[in-house]
Design a protein around this nucleic acid. Structure first.
Lengths: 224, 224
DNA sequence: TATAGAAATATTGCATACAAATATTGGAAA
DNA sequence: TTTCCAATATTTGTATGCAATATTTCTATA
């Protein structure tokens, strides 16, 4: 047991996170320790440690003596998260313009050019993955572990709400055009423009989400 | 026992954090579970849960089977934290310019004017506390719980390294002048200027720190 | 004397048991 | 029938013990 370097509670935290992110554990759902222990065939101790870890990610809430629940995100809170994501992405773009080394700049440009081909081929799956790499490269290019970790955590948190991101017709091409502005600014070392361009880019992602979610059901006080 | 709503492990997390922030537990120090249990007169279980919570704050590191250590901040890492702090503060100022309601704007202005008196009186202790309130008000004014929490956590993390912040002669007056630019921009709803002004302000705080730390001992690879 | 390997020791990870607190259910009174 | 209270049941918080792993120490050999 525990053949690799990871411990049971760490593995558990990942598994529970997956259940939440894939929707098996729905928002608001009570996470009973006995139930989780039974389900994953461990004792309550590692379950409790895993839950402690997950609180930090924002995926679950815990109250003393009242147990853990899957974080129920309200529309307002979700909107806040998108705003924060946009600001953090823009900040990373700003820092990347100032801090990326020549190799990182070259790689970012190469990735961006590769993505042009995917747009032409209307290859959505590959573009989605390349898009993730694009953004992650900019987090890393900021050369700031604190910002990088925060950005990665936010992206992970918002991932389930972004599934249909590129389904809107023409969104692929638009996304690539927005990236163009970001890349150009970063390569030129223009931090102000990089910040502004990335902010526009991510805000537009949020707009796309709003459009989508308003199109669907949205009762008063509904939880997403 | 557990007379209030908090649980033993939560209280413990706070106590351990204090020991670290006040310097009783020095960076790099091993945090042996038995030792902590003995010291705080509890069993190892709440100690372990407290440590899990503290990992999230960045105050300690944990490796599987190798225990917990007080996070040893290198000079590079500390510099990164200051950069991140600056970016986040600037972002909050930006959002405050866009989001603060009239009451919040009025209060910020009032606080700023109060601080002018402290500068004239060269009242450093009160200015330090008012300065904290000033920055916290701007975090809150962003109307974004995610950014607010991140900013508060960063500030708490950096607090021990900022003790001598206003000891530099004339720093009080300079700080107030920098605040002036920030306040004016926020009240005018000028997000771009608010961002830039706050960035300058916090970068200068970092400069003050650098100056201080270079003045002291700083061996190659030294840990602060 | 220095180094490598093995035994001994110490420490963390997990399971189980018990204590304390909260949530639920049933019944009595209005 | 509804509401309030109390007894019961469920659930979380903590303690303790054992198992697994890492670290240290000791010894034998080069």
């Amino acid at each position: 047991m525990a053949v690799d370097g990871r411990t049971r509670s760490e593995v558990l935290a990942g598994e529970i996170a997956d259940e939440i992110l894939t929707g098996s554990f729905v928002p608001g759902m009570r996470l009973d320790e006995h139930m989780l222990a039974e389900r994953f065939k461990v004792s309550r101790t590692p379950v409790r440690e895993a839950l402690r870890q997950l609180v930090a990610t924002g995926l679950i809430d815990m109250q003393p003596r009242r147990g853990a629940h899957v974080a129920a995100i309200t529309a307002d809170r979700l909107s806040e998260l998108f705003v924060a994501m946009g600001e953090v992405e823009a900040t990373c773009a700003r820092l990347s313009a100032l801090s990326m080394n020549p190799i990182e700049r070259r790689r970012l440009q190469a990735l961006h050019e590769t993505m042009a081909g995917m747009v032409e081929a209307n290859n959505e799956p590959d573009y989605v993955e390349a898009n993730r790499q694009f953004h992650v490269a900019i987090y890393a290019g900021a050369h700031n572990a604190t910002m990088n970790d925060f950005a990665v955590a936010l992206r992970r948190r918002l991932d389930p709400f972004r599934r249909a991101q590129f389904r809107t017709p023409g969104r692929l091409r638009q996304s690539h055009a927005e990236h163009e502005r970001v890349v150009t600014a970063i390569l030129a070392g223009d931090s102000v423009t990089a910040h502004a361009a990335m902010l526009d880019h991510v805000n537009l992602v949020e707009d796309a989400f709003d459009q989508m979610s308003h199109g669907g059901r949205r009762a008063a006080g509904s939880r997403l």
